[in-house]
Structure formats: structure tokens, C-alpha cells
Design a protein around this nucleic acid. Sequence first.
DNA 1: CTGAAAGCGCTTACAG
DNA 2: CTGAAAGCGCTTACAG
Lengths: 331, 331
Amino acid sequence: MAQATIYSVALAAGVSLATVSRVLNNPEKVKKSTRERVLKVINELGYRPNVIARGLASRKTTNVGVVVSDITRASVAEMLGGISDIANNYQYSIKIFVIREETDIIDTTHKIVSEQVDGILFLNDELAEQKVQDVKNIFDQNNIPVVFANVIASNDESPQVSIDYEKAGYELTKTLIDDNRKNIFLLSTARKYKVNDLKEAGYTKAIKEAGLPVKIFRTSGDTDINSQHFSSFFKDKIVDAAIGVRDSIAVSFMNIAIKNGRKIPENIAVAGFQNTKYALLSRPLMTSLDIPVYDIGAVSMRLLTKLMNKENVENIQISLPHFIVKRESTR
Amino acid sequence: MAQATIYSVALAAGVSLATVSRVLNNPEKVKKSTRERVLKVINELGYRPNVIARGLASRKTTNVGVVVSDITRASVAEMLGGISDIANNYQYSIKIFVIREETDIIDTTHKIVSEQVDGILFLNDELAEQKVQDVKNIFDQNNIPVVFANVIASNDESPQVSIDYEKAGYELTKTLIDDNRKNIFLLSTARKYKVNDLKEAGYTKAIKEAGLPVKIFRTSGDTDINSQHFSSFFKDKIVDAAIGVRDSIAVSFMNIAIKNGRKIPENIAVAGFQNTKYALLSRPLMTSLDIPVYDIGAVSMRLLTKLMNKENVENIQISLPHFIVKRESTR
DNA sequence: CTGAAAGCGCTTACAG
DNA sequence: CTGAAAGCGCTTACAG
């Protein structure tokens, strides 16, 4: 049997389709008795409004677009968990848009606009700032609210939720300084992201305050590649502490340090960012800065729903709390 | 300025909207000169067809629904990578539907139907078989093609792409048997999934062939929990080899074995499933059965496009090759 | 409280 | 090769 439509419901209930529509969207405007009659028919027929038709007529799709770079990254997946939980509560559906290095961002953005999403969650932290601004402009022109999640947008007033990465970098570095470490490396990525820039800024600030030498080692996020970098690292560097901008980088470093005969944390203290499963499955267990990724996703989505409803939001730039989980790799 | 519509393009190009539509959908049916004129206007106006309106009129949304349980799992995220890459090629957009234990599957399935997706990729391996069948039936009734990705559907003829998990379990167990191990544990999950059942079947087959004792230890997928289980494990069990149904379980086991004074692989050989980053960041490096998760996603999506186009597909049940990556945790 | 009608922005037979 | 018209399944003023 064909899917029931609003027509068949109206017919069976002996009302007009306007009334059926009201029962669904503004039930209080319909007399109780008719409302119940319509509802009964809806149930019997298993009627579900065609979301596409509704989207066209109402100009609201109840779809939100989530823009990501690498959906494969644990933090991204975790954030999606938070997003989808809240989206479910608010009856929004999620459309994923993956932007890669090769893709024409502007073109893709226009494509997203043509998909008529009601709002955008932007998780892509790997885009150059200028590009982010371009993208933001296009969404603005089309009146589509955007929330940047775990991405520090350019220094404007864009809605965003994240943690204070500079402070986090500062604090994590400070714990190593307080442990009397003198040669503290920051293991960062070769490619520059705003988020990592902030971690670096915090690191540098703490290091300089302590009168220590700033030592930033740039490597790859790819474990196979950074293993090689780290192998040569130990030939010529003096090091008694290291912070990886991601847990995977820190664990990788730690493993190779051990292989090179260093004791953790006696010779070298190691800490990472993100507090992922890697930190829990490493030996020794690794100290890591916990970033509430799930919450960032959830809070972003909640903020977005408010913006989509044109509610007046007091604070559109939310900074969530972070904390350091101390484990065996530091003292 | 308001978004250009097909009307404004038609007006500016001096043709009917039918012609504009044809230029977009059946360009060969339009005279070259008019086609070029229309195309020019489209460019000038930055016109993009409203995907929703198109979806309503053509009854094709070029959306595919991806049904997942835990989007947070590395394998799911990786699969999504493959799916989105191919979806991009074929111009499909991806809508994510997360099904959790609490959710009413049947209701959600109806909801997905009402979203008018053209096809479904079903990644949810945590559903009981009966439920899977129910869900499948609903999609069938609504003529929505479904491909099961990395899920073994009930013993019917549903389209699916996966690996031969039983064979994989058999082979992995065999390598340990060939290394002369006698007390080989399978570390499985308490909750039963079809996929793990198959791994168990392969394990059991190999073990019985060798005349060894079947030893299945059930624990949790959660690292915090299984650590505790494994700690008590070593009090009373004789073991010289273990296979974790997931890498994370195997690494967790290995770490605790080492803590209990066992040498890997001398005393205990350890292997996992999935060949994730965990296997690469563990010490010793862990042997693991590589499951081409990305490819499973990509191939599923490609198969789905064919089904959505109503192409005649020879083989709708695809088994991708797997292989064992031997590392330091086994000999 | 309810219905008739227009309209959302497209596609798609049908004519010509 | 092109256009006029109907229709996809809804929502939403407007009347009453």
C-alpha cells in the first residue's frame, strides 16, 4: 500500500488538509474532538508527513549541516556523538559534509546552502582563517546560522564553543615546569591550525615566564611518519619533558623514548592533549589534558537550535572547562 | 540579494523554466546555443537548484541515510570516511541516524522513511537479528534499498558487504596454534553480536580441530571495566595466548598481562581484530587482523548507488579480503 | 475553529 | 528543440 499522505488522512477523517496540517503543527488551534478524530486516522494509516514537502512549504528542513574535515578522527567522532544526541532531542536531522584539502570550499559551501539546511555546525579546524571567513560570509548572506565547534573562528563575534586552548597549554606546561623540568618540548604538527597555535601560545608563555628555552618540534599527525621523526629526535636533543598536541603524538613519542632507553617519567615526563583512549592504553598511563569533546558537540548543537529559533542568546561564545588528568607519565 | 531561482534564470535567459530544468538534467535535449545561453545566466546569477524542491518534484532526494549505533567507534568513523568519499563522487549527501539501545527502532525506521532518503546504509551491528529483519521489512515495503555494511544480516539475500569473519577468526587462531600455543583464550564481549559470534565460530572450529580446549572469556568493550576483569583473570587461569575481538580489548589485556609479570610473546601471545591505531601504539606492537573498514564503507556505498539506480547487480553479497598483520606480540 | 486557495521551487509527461 | 501546465505533498495567510 502506498504511503499515506495528508490528503488520504483528510479524506478519511472528513476534514480539509489544512486541518490535518494544523493538528500536526498547531494542535491547540483545532477543536479537541476533531483533533482526536484526525489523530486516530493518522495512527490507523501510519501517516508520517513527508519531510521534504514540509521543508519546501515551510522553508524549514529541520536539517542541520555538520561540516568536518576528517570524520575519522576520534575527537570528531566523539563530538558527533554529542551533536546527534542533542539533535535527536530537538528533532533535527544531521547532514554530514566532509571538506578535504582538495575540495573547493567555496563551491562546497554553496552546495550546502542549496541543500537548505536550517543551520550549520562547523567542526573544520584545518581550514586557513581566511577560508573560514569566506565560508562564514556565504552562510551569513544566506541567513544560515553557524556555530563553530572546537574551532577558534577569526577574532570576530561568531558563535563558537570550545575550551580556552591557550590557558590549557599554559597550565599543562606549568605542571611540567613545577616538576622542575628544564628542557620541555612541544610536539606540534607541521601544518598550522588555529587550535594548535593557541596551545603553542600557552606553552610559550609558560616557558618564557620560567626563563626556559622554547622548544617546538614539528612532526606529522600520522603515527607511521612521526615515529621516524622521533627516532632521529633522540640523537641530538636534550629533553626531559614533552607535550604532544594530540595524545597519539605523545604516545608515539613516549614509546620511542622508551625504546631509546629513557625512563618515563624519571628521565622524560610526557603529556598529551585530549585524554583519549590512547592515554589509557599506553604504558605508562599517560597524563593528558581532558577536552570535553562530547560536551562541546552537545553545547554547540544546543546553541545552534537557539540561533535557528532566533532566540535572543546572551552569550554566543562559550568556553567549556578543561582539566588535567595526571597519570604515570608525569610526576 | 535573494537566492536565484529557476524562474529568475528562465526570465534572464529568455526561456521557459522547463528549458532551464533540462539544461541541468538532460542537457543533450537542449540546442547547444540555448544551452550555453542558459548556462551563462546560471553562472552569472550563481544559481543552484533548491535541492528540497527538486527532491519533492522528482521524488529523489539524492540523500542516503546511514544508520549507526555508536558513531564514536573508530571502525564506524573509518567506514563513514569511505562512505562519504564515494557519496561525494556520486553526488549523494549523507544523513546520519544514530540508533541507541533505548530508541524505538521501528519508530525511528518510519521516521527515516519519512525523510525520503533514496537508500540506506546500515552499519548497526548491535541490533538483535529479529530487529534487523523488522527494520529491513519496513524499508522493503517502502521500496528503499538497503545495504548492510560490516553487519552480517540474517541468513537471507540482503545486500551486504563485509569480510568473512568466521574465516578470519579461524585463521588468526590457526597462527597461534601453529606457534604451538595450547591455552588460547578468545576475549569476547559479554553482549552478543552477530559479527563476534562469527569470530567465535572460527576460533572454536580451529581450536577443536587441534584438539585444544575452547576458552572464551567474556568482558566489556569498555577499557575501564575490562581492566578490572583482566586483573582477576590472571589469578586462576592458565593462558599462553589470547585473541581480543577488538584491538582495544587485546591491548588492554596485554598491558595487564605485562603488569602481572608475563612476557609478551614469550609467555603469552596476543592478537587483536581490526588493526587500528591501538595496535600500532601498543608496546610490544600488536599483531592484528586487518579489516578493510574504509573499503567496506566505500564498496557498500557504491553497491547502494547501483541498487538506487535499479541497475542489475550480479553480486549483492560482497566479501572483502582480510589479512593478518604480524607484529611483535606474536611469533 | 475550519476550509479554499495560493504557493514553496522544482520535474515531467504532453503537445507542438 | 521548446513551452504550457500539472503535480510533488506540504504550509500558511486569508476568509468566514
